[in-house]
Amino acid sequence: MIVVMEKSATQAQIEHMIGRVQELGLKAHVIQGTERTVIAAVGDDRGSSKESLASGPGVSEVVPILAPYKVASRELKPDPTQIQVGQFKAGAGVVGVMAGPCSVESEEQIVSSAHAVKKAGATALRGGAFKPRTSPYSFQGMKEEGLKLLALAREETGLAIVTEVMSTEEVDLVAKYSDVLQIGARNMQNYRLLEAVGNSDRAVLLKRGASATIEEFLLAAEYILNEGNPNVMLCERGIRTFETHTRFTLPLATVPYLHRKTHLPVIIDPSHGTGHAYLVPDMSVAAVAAGADGLIIEVHPTPETAASDGYQSLTFPQFDETMARCARVAVAVDKEMCTMH
């Protein structure tokens, strides 16, 4: 249920209604709007009385949330959410770009990548310290040493750091060095991990599972939001279909559809979504045209020597050109590219 407070409601009345919601055994999620405050009463409300909340002081009305995902729904928050981490922003008309290599391989590699993507216009650096691989014999990442190198790159450039966390035990460690915790496609329905990052103070980039429906995707985000972390970005990275000409199928219709269903920013990953470097620039531009709030792109100094995913990574010049094209398209669709100040 949504408890809509009157415009004239006092802070004491708002606090009182938060307490009433909690007395009913529900979680209270408070959204401060420009016009008024709303309180989402989330949980099993079968034993709760809508009337008991509607009669509270300062309450305008109580309405049900019809979507199965409550806090992520536009029914609760009609206005788009903007996520800001350092100088990185995404959502509410701003397009933020995260870029960098698939894996952290060395200090020279990650620091040079950070300087290059910053120069091209990115405001966040992506890089995997812990790498989930299909084969146990593939490169698994540099782990904590990789995290330290990411932190070094942030110190030199001011870029926000985006890196994947793979288990509940690693959340605190990864959060110590990074600004955005990435939940990979394989872990989209790892509910204990979702709850763990929901209890973190770091923003979360949640990737859609390769076989997940949109509703399952949003319900995964709901696990994070329900734990009290409002800073969630949804990442479409392609789904598995019968096609073989690309690594996955990148459904850009996801962008406007999600914007109708949720207030959360929508990020597109054209690197995993296509699996071919030559397709990444065009799909990046198309994503911005479709209304995406951000991009996460793999960029490597020498893709042919990359420890992982070199075939879908852009070179520095290719990324420069891609960013220039995206900036032109952003203007055409009334959006602005996030830039460093």
Rank of each mutant, 00 (worst) to 15 (best):
F242Q: 10
K77S: 14
I161T: 04
T134W: 05
A41L: 01
A67H: 14
I297L: 03
T302K: 14
E156T: 15
N231T: 10
I110G: 01
V165N: 03
Q312D: 06
P78Q: 15
K27Q: 09
S271V: 05
V30R: 10
D334A: 13
P281S: 11
I268Y: 00
I2N: 07
E336L: 06
L152T: 10
G141K: 01
H341S: 14
V42E: 11
A28I: 12
Q109D: 04
I39N: 04
M340L: 11
M17W: 02
D44S: 11
K261F: 06
L219K: 08
P78F: 04
Q22D: 04
A120T: 07
A72D: 08
A129Y: 05
I110Q: 00
R192L: 08
S200D: 09
H259E: 15
I267N: 02
L147A: 03
E170I: 06
K7V: 13
V63S: 01
M188N: 07
M142A: 00
V62H: 03
E145R: 11
V197I: 09
T315G: 10
V288H: 10
E216F: 03
V331A: 14
I214E: 00
S271R: 10
Q22I: 14
A287E: 05
S135A: 05
E155A: 07
A175L: 08
P301Y: 07
K7F: 10
R237T: 13
S103A: 15
L26Q: 03
S178Q: 00
A253E: 15
A153I: 03
E304R: 08
A307L: 13
V255H: 01
G291F: 08
L219P: 09
K143H: 14
S308C: 15
R202C: 03
F139P: 06
G291K: 13
E6M: 10
A160D: 05
A54P: 09
N199S: 14
L152E: 06
V180H: 02
E105I: 00
